[in-house]
């Protein structure tokens, strides 16, 4: 299930947020040697875009472990492309229906997972990403990514526009490119289809009752059970074919 972690429910996810900042430290600071503009504390990485209006999408396992995460924020205020305008040829995109996407990471344990598990993990996060857009009326996400990632985005069938030319970043000759991706309702349908996710995958916790933990909220709302039921597609398909057999027998 993909959890939308917002300022309203962030205190329910203290453990996961800490784990996410640690993963970011490992990936961006330890492996890639980034440090400019970053705050590093206790092997965790933070930057100026970890703000109250930031939303983290987290793909969590049933026991609350992170599989993968995204960071999202509105573009009506200062955001990454305002800080790095050299990646944008023309005006920096801005609007209520445009959000910016950064820090896309898969947890190391899931990088080693078998092909199918990995695809399911990523497919669910991608569908959650597009579903989140639907809940907020977001039509476009901007993102700044390694140019080497562009063929995969093109071949996944996403609709996008390039915002500028590739420009170098980092010290190994890598270049990044800014794109704006169409995430309207058609895009959600397309992604659900290519990843085979035909159910709602996004969960945004309502304000919790005093003293509740995320597990308590999920239990109170009966969310785990519902999700388990509907995500167990094989069982559902089996049940369905059993039903049709009965139907035709009658």
């Amino acid at each position: 299930m993909i959890h939308a972690v917002t300022s309203a429910n962030r205190h329910l996810y203290t453990r996961q947020l800490k784990a996410m900042h640690k993963m970011r430290y490992d990936f961006y600071v330890a492996q890639r040697g980034w440090s400019d503009g970053l705050t590093i504390e206790d092997e965790c990485e933070y930057d100026e875009f970890d703000r109250p209006d930031t939303v983290y999408l987290m793909n969590l396992s049933r026991d609350g472990e992170i599989r993968s995460t995204f960071r999202l924020m509105p573009t009506i205020d200062y955001y990454l492309l305002d800080k790095l305008p050299q990646f944008v040829d023309g005006p920096v995109p801005r609007g209520k229906q445009i959000w910016d996407m950064t820090r896309w990471i898969i947890a190391p344990a899931f990088r080693k997972a078998s092909g199918q598990t990995r695809i399911k993990t990523q497919g669910e996060l991608t569908c959650g990403l597009f579903e989140f857009a639907a809940t907020r009326g977001i039509t476009h996400y901007t993102t700044l990514m390694d140019t080497a990632f562009l063929p995969a985005v093109e071949q996944a069938g996403w609709k996008y526009e390039l915002l500028g030319l590739p420009v170098p970043y980092g010290d190994r000759g890598e270049t990044a490119i800014a794109v704006i991706i169409d995430v309207g309702p058609k895009a959600l349908a397309h992604n659900r289809m290519i990843y085979g996710v035909d159910y709602s995958i996004l969960f945004e916790s309502p304000p919790p009752r005093i003293g509740e933990r995320i597990e308590d909220v999920l239990a109170r709302l009966d969310v785990i059970e519902t999700i388990e039921k509907i995500s167990d597609r094989e069982a559902r398909m089996a049940a369905w074919s059993g039903l049709t057999t009965q139907f035709s027998a009658a």
Binding site: F27, Y28, Q31, R32, L80, M101, T102, R103, W104, I106, R111, G115, R118, I119, Q122, G123, T126, T143, L144, M145, D146, A148, F149, P151, A152, V153, Q155, A156, G157, Y169, A176, I194, Y195
Partner: peptide, 18 residues
Amino acid sequence: RTRAQAIVECLVNGIVTL
């Protein structure tokens, strides 16, 4: 390979979003 694999392969190979 599938279209879905496209993105996943790139991500696990450490190609990054900023």
